[in-house]
């Protein structure tokens, strides 16, 4: 469960501090599929980063899976990310020099899983995203859709309860985008919590809850059944 209470976050530009999120409160239950929308500058990426423990808020409190994030050190945050959160980025963010399988194994390395188990799990994950025959390919040898599927497999490597997706279809053609959303739908059915930022209505409609942000404030929070 994700619980944000009275979050305030500002960025410093020169002398001024510009508020990005102000007094934002939000609760996301386990297993929810949430889409966060809003124009650029609305604070949606900042909110996503805070939820993903990539960034911390200036004020307010954040509890994730009953763990308070507020006072966590950088290393503690890394441990929380390693344990609870999987990331899918718009630009895939695969390490280009290594094979897709090695990319998937990366989070497991930092979680301290031995190489035999890593191999077993990564092969399974590749199967799950339909890329068993691409395990030795580097990202340059994969299409955008395939790269994003590798990235999803990587996000799932440590069996996180939460998937953070930042414009996951933003760099993809429509067909590949739909394939990715099918995977998300399947994950949702497996009771993974998914928090996704997007600006496309079609994509947002895959979620069961849509949160709209403007100037750091939630202006709309609708659940679709």
């Amino acid at each position: 469960m994700i619980n944000l209470d009275n979050i305030y976050k500002s960025y410093h530009s020169g002398e001024n501090s510009v508020p990005v999120l102000s007094n934002l409160s939000l609760t996301i239950e386990t297993g929810e599929f949430v889409a966060i929308m809003g124009s650029s500058g609305s604070g949606k990426s900042t909110l996503l980063n805070i939820i993903g423990c990539l960034d911390t808020c200036d004020q307010g409190s954040y509890t994730l899976e009953n763990t308070s994030i507020n006072q966590a050190s950088n290393d503690k945050l890394a441990q929380i990310r390693s344990k609870y959160i999987g990331f899918v980025f718009q630009s895939f963010s695969l390490i280009p020099r290594i094979s897709s399988q090695k990319n998937i194994e990366l989070p497991m390395i930092y979680a301290g899983i031995n190489s035999k188990d890593r191999q077993k799990k990564s092969i399974k994950l590749l199967e799950q995203v339909g890329l068993t025959d691409r395990r030795h390919h580097s990202s340059a040898q994969l299409s955008g859709g395939q790269q994003q599927r590798v990235a999803i497999a990587r996000a799932l490597a440590n069996q996180p309860s939460i998937i953070i997706a930042d414009e996951p279809t933003g760099s993809l053609d429509t067909v590949s985008g739909l394939e990715i959303m099918d995977i998300f739908t399947a994950l949702h059915k497996q009771n993974k919590t998914i928090v996704m930022v997007t600006h496309e209505d079609d994509i947002a409609n895959y979620a069961q809850r849509i949160i709209k942000l403007r100037d750091g404030v939630i202006i709309e929070d609708t659940s679709v059944c």
Partner: peptide
């Protein structure tokens, strides 16, 4: 830099 960011995102600690 991006690779470092990614490694951190997937759980690398400072010492790693």
């Amino acid at each position: 830099t991006r690779e470092i960011g990614l490694r951190k995102a997937v759980g690398a600690q400072e010492n790693h």
